[in-house]
Structures are given as C-alpha cells and as structure tokens.
Amino acid sequence: MIVAGCDVGSLTAKAVILGDDRVLAVRIGKVKSRPEISAREIMEEALKDAGLQMKDIECSIGTGYGGKQVPFAGDTVSEIACHARGALWLLPSVRTVIDIGGQDCKVMKLDRDGRIVKFATNDKCAAGTGRFMEVMARVLNVGLDELGDLSGRAKKQLNLASTCTVWAQAEVIQKINEGERVEDIGCAVNNAMANRIVILANTVGVENDVCMTGGVSKNKGVVKGLERLLDIRVKKLRFDPQAVGALGAAVIAGERRKGGGEQ
C-alpha cells in the first residue's frame, strides 16, 4: 500500500511517501508562489525519488498552512495532529512533542494511545519561532544551520535579556559592537529561544519521552538549552525533523486507507 503526506508550510513544503509502512521518499523544498504549485512540485520530486507516479498513491493527506490547497490530497489534517502522529510513529514511547516551525511553536501532550490530550501554541508574536532564529542568524551573519553549533564553541556566558525579536535584534547588534564573539552571542540567542519554549512546554506539562520536530530542532544549542531548563532528555528522531509533519500525514493516510483509527 502506497500512501503520501504533503505539508505546505509558511517557508517550506515537505512530501513523504510510505510504502507498506516503510519510508520510500522524503523531500523538502522552499515554497513557491502558490501552495498548490509548491505541493505538486515537491510531491513530484518525491515520486521521482521513489520511482513512482502520482497514480500509484492510494491515499494522501495534506497539512500545514497550505494544506487545504494540496490538489492531490484526499483530505487535510491539522499540522498539530500530523506532527504528533509522525513523532509517535518514529518513537512510540513519546508523550510530549515540541514542534518549532517558521511561524508557529506548538507543544503537544499525548496519552498512552497516542491521542493528543492537550496542546498549546505560541502567542501572536515571532519570538519563539523559526522566524526569530532566522532574524538572529542574519544579524550575526551566519547560516541558519550554523547557529546551533555556535553554542558548543561558546566560551563566555552572555545573556540576551530580551526575547522580543525587535529588542533582541538591537541587543545582538549592541553585543557585536561591543566586540563580543559571534559564538558567545549565538549561544545566548539559542538560550533565549529555549527559554521562550520552556514557558509553552510548562503550560501543557512535560512528560517523558520528549521529542522535537520542525526546523529549529536541528539546532543543537536550543535542544541543549531546553534539556537543561526542563531537566529532561530530548529523544532524537531518526528522521528529518522538518518532515515529521508530512510523515504524520502519510501515516494518517495509511490508517485511513486501512480504515483504521482516526487521528
């Protein structure tokens, strides 16, 4: 049975194809001018990787901001449910899923059966989202994917007082002008981000096992900061964390196809 999930977010589009509960293809790409174009293009790339054609897909689910516009999807499911379902598929013992996407940050708490019993989303503010990290990386003149490694090379503990994107940006510039090392400032940025997520995580109450999804979870500095502040270990997923939502969508598509559990 071949099923697919397609997650069209605010910054990236993701596609995952599953064949008999095995991952056949994963693709991530930047969004295009319209969600339906993003969806079709990313899915076509994934199909190519898997050596399949669109007609081979027996069921597909769309998710994300542009989920409703995925032209080939049989149905849409919220990204909250998809991230939770994807994480659960990868790590059956997971109880808390922290997802940090480009515009949103969410924390989901699952029960033993994998049902979401509680979730919390960020307030209407860019702090605590991927957007915050993007702005900071640009100010520091490092790549977004390099930001996480800075924490490991930091020598001096700097505190970024502000977690507001606007104020923090000013503060980072000030620190650069004061001659602070980029590594130390980067570490402070990562810690500030972690601090911000902790509030949301504590709102739902963290329970082991914990895993992270979304682009920011690739940032080692943030993950370490979260582990320290929440006094937990974040379990690593053997999967691209950015594509977990699309994976969850594919898993749900599989369940729907089998006529199984509704998530």
Partner: peptide, 28 residues
C-alpha cells in the same frame, strides 16, 4: 491561517476523544 490550524487541531482532539477523561485531566 493561524486561526484555522488551531481550530483544526481542537476539532481533531474532540473527534479523537482526546478531550481527556476527568481523571486524566485532573491527574494532569
């Protein structure tokens, strides 16, 4: 978009019975 994503998740939670029993939530 922001609103829709959150509403979808709430409805799915209700649909899946993830409202949580009284017991589960008071334990929480």
């Amino acid at each position: 978009g922001r609103v829709r994503m959150r509403i979808d998740a709430l409805l799915e939670r209700i649909g899946a019975g993830g409202g949580g029993s009284r017991r589960a939530l008071s334990a929480d």
